[in-house]
C-alpha cells in the first residue's frame, strides 16, 4: 500500500520539516506581536508534520526493511519524530505553555538541518541490523531516549529563560508566557528519569546482541554511547540526591544533549569505516 503513495520518503521528510518550521514561525510571529498563539493551531500543525514524517519513516522503513536508523539523516528524523511524539504525550497532560513552540523549533532544526549535508543520507546495505530484533529494539529505544533528552533540553532552556527573567526582573515578552520555574524543574526531573530508564533499557537489549557479536559493534560507538549513558546516569544520581538541582541541572542536561547529538556524527563515521558485514547491495543513494 505504501508503494502506491505518490510521494518519496525524502519529500515527506521535507514537507514535515517545512510544517514544523511553519509552526515555529507562527508561534514566533504571535510572540513578537505580544500575543499568545492559539494552542489548537500549534497542535494541529505539529500533528500534520508528525503524520507526514511518520509517512516518510514508513516509506524509508519499507524500503530498507528495518527501522530507518542507518545514517545520520534517518537518526535525526527519528529523534525529531520522537520529540514531537513526546510533546503529544506531555503537552496536553501538563499544559506547559510554549512547549509546542519550542518543540516545533527543535523538530524543524533537526528535520531540516540534516538536508544541509547530503552525505548524511549515505546509502547502506539493507538489513543493517542483520534481522536481529534485539538490536533493532536497542536502536529504536536508544533514539527514542534521545527524543526524551531532546524535549528535556527544551524544558531546561525554557527553565533557564524563565529563571533569568525572574532574577533580572524582566516581565515582558517571552517571560510572561513561559510556565513557572517550579513546573519546568519538576518536568525536567521526570523527563530525566524517563530518559535514563529508556536509554538503560536500550543498552541492556544492545548488550544481549553485543555479547555474541563483539566484532560487529565499533569500539568508538560503544564508548561514545556508554559515556553519554554514564553522563545522564551521573546527572540522574546527583539529581536524586538533590546535589544537582534547578539551574545547574538544566545546564548539565543541555550540555549532555548537545554532546549526545554531536557524538552521532563520529559514531556514524566509525560505523561507515567498518567493513561491510553483509554482501547485500547498497540502498540506492537519494
Amino acid at each position: 500500500m505504501l508503494n502506491e503513495i505518490a510521494m518519496t520518503d525524502k519529500n515527506a521528510f521535507a514537507v514535515a520539516a517545512a510544517i514544523y518550521g511553519g509552526a515555529f514561525a507562527f508561534g514566533l510571529v504571535a510572540l513578537l506581536m505580544r500575543r499568545v498563539y492559539p494552542r489548537a493551531v500549534m497542535f494541529a500543525l505539529l500533528v500534520g508534520g508528525f503524520l507526514i514524517q511518520t509517512l516518510g519513516l514508513n516509506l524509508r522503513g519499507a524500503e530498507i526493511k528495518a527501522c530507518p536508523l542507518g545514517n545520520i539523516f534517518e537518526v535525526a528524523q527519528f529523534i525529531a519524530w520522537s520529540l514531537v511524539l513526546l510533546f503529544f504525550i506531555i503537552g496536553p497532560a501538563f499544559r506547559l505553555r510554549l512547549l509546542g513552540f519550542f518543540t516545533a523549533g527543535l523538530a524543524a532544526l533537526l528535520a531540516a538541518g540534516v538536508f544541509a549535508v547530503p552525505a548524511w543520507d549515505r546509502a547502506y546495505p539493507p538489513g543493517i541490523f542483520g534481522g536481529n530484533p534485539w538490536i533493532e529494539l536497542h536502536a529504536a529505544l536508544a533514539i527514542f531516549s534521545y527524543g526524551v533528552f531532546a524535549i528535556l533540553s527544551l524544558v531546561s532552556i525554557m527553565f533557564l529563560i524563565q529563571q533569568h527573567g525572574l532574577k533580572k526582573k524582566q516581565f515582558k515578552g517571552l517571560y510572561q508566557y513561559l510556565p513557572s520555574v517550579q513546573q519546568l524543574d519538576l518536568m525536567a526531573k521526570r523527563l530525566l528519569i524517563t530518559g535514563v530508564i529508556v536509554l538503560s533499557a536500550s543498552l541492556i537489549f544492545g548488550s544481549i546482541f553485543w555479547v555474541n557479536n563483539h566484532e560487529l559493534v565499533p569500539v568508538f560507538k560503544l564508548t561514545a554511547t556508554c559515556l553519554i549513558w554514564l553522563g545522564y546516569l551521573t546527572v540522574f544520581v546527583l539529581r536524586i540526591q538533590k546535589k544537582l538541582v534547578t539551574r545547574r541541572h538544566a545546564i548539565a542536561t543541555i550540555i549532555l544533549f548537545v554532546l549526545a547529538i554531536a557524538s552521532l556524527w563520529p559514531v556514524q563515521s566509525a560505523r561507515d569505516s567498518e567493513p561491510q558485514t553483509t554482501g547485500a547491495p547498497l540502498r540506492v543513494e537519494r
Binding site: 505580544r34 524563565q162 527573567g165 525572574l166 516581565f171 517571560y175 510572561q176 513561559l178 510556565p179 513557572s180 520555574v181 517550579q182 513546573q183
Partner: peptide, 23 residues
C-alpha cells in the same frame, strides 16, 4: 487591545510573579 494587560497593583504584581515561580 492591551488595555487590561499586566497587573497594576503591588499585590497583584506579586501574585503574577508568584505564579511565574510556582504555577
Amino acid at each position: 487591545t492591551g488595555i487590561t494587560r499586566g497587573q497594576i497593583s503591588i499585590g497583584n504584581v506579586a501574585v503574577d510573579l508568584a505564579s511565574r515561580i510556582f504555577g
